[in-house]
């Protein structure tokens, strides 16, 4: 009798341990560039920003940086400032998800300089702006720092649906303008997604 109870108890414990060990974790880390990220039809996902930024940077490098068409003041490296990036989609997000990636990669090329002080509206780095103004006040004979190019853009959403399928196209427009207001580079990148419900991976 005792032996049977012991056997049953041990078997139960083993089954419980095995079930716990084999159950999938509720939360797990995934690489930000993996194919296992969640993809939604109704919003721009992090992988979409990375993809759009990647193709935009490749286009800027190929058409502007590689050809040497971006010129700075007095032979120095050109300074690029970020202007307005308009979010015309139905979801709210920080446009830095796109812009910061582009800026980081352009700065890494070593061919352009970017700025945190010459911004539209509030400066990204108020302390750096204060320091810049102080330097300008101290060095009266020195020309103030000005940007040579500005990056502006817009993100537009176009949605379509049938009875059981939804489609969203996110169109990324970016423009690089010089100080005369002439566009030196423009690019459009589309990302289209179809689906019924959010899913993992693509």
């Amino acid at each position: 009798m005792f032996k049977s109870i012991l056997t049953i108890a041990l078997t139960g414990t083993c089954v419980a341990l095995l079930t716990t060990g084999c159950s999938s974790p509720k939360t797990q880390y995934v690489d930000s560039d993996s194919s296992r990220l969640i993809a939604n039809v109704d919003e721009i996902n992090i992988q979409d920003f990375a993809r759009a930024a990647d193709e935009m940077v490749q286009s800027i490098i190929e058409n502007c940086i590689s050809t040497g068409s971006l010129k700075g003041t007095n032979g120095e490296k050109p300074i690029l400032a970020i202007s307005r990036i308009v979010n015309n989609t139905s979801t709210q997000f920080d446009t830095d998800l796109l812009v910061k990636r582009i800026r980081t990669e352009l700065l890494r090329t070593g061919k352009v300089l970017t700025t945190t002080t010459l911004n539209l509206g509030v400066s990204e780095d108020p302390l750096a702006k204060e320091a810049m103004l102080m330097e300008e006040a101290l060095a009266e004979d020195q020309a103030p720092l000005v940007h040579n190019y500005t990056l502006s853009g817009k993100i537009i959403e176009v949605t379509t649906r049938t009875s059981n399928l939804r489609q969203s196209t996110y169109e990324f427009h970016l423009t690089l303008s010089d100080r005369r207001g002439l566009n030196v580079w423009e690019e459009i990148k589309n990302i289209t997604k179809q689906g019924k419900k959010p899913s993992v991976g693509f």
């Binding site: 560039d33 992988q47 490749q58 070593g110």
Partner: peptide
């Protein structure tokens, strides 16, 4: 490494030849 690293989805129709061109963002 790059903050732009991503897996790009692509579709190719039956019998289609397609080119994937990628530019390195670092010299």
């Amino acid at each position: 490494t790059s903050p732009l690293a991503n897996r790009t989805p692509i579709q190719i129709e039956g019998g289609q030849k397609r080119n994937i061109a990628v530019l390195a963002t670092s010299p």
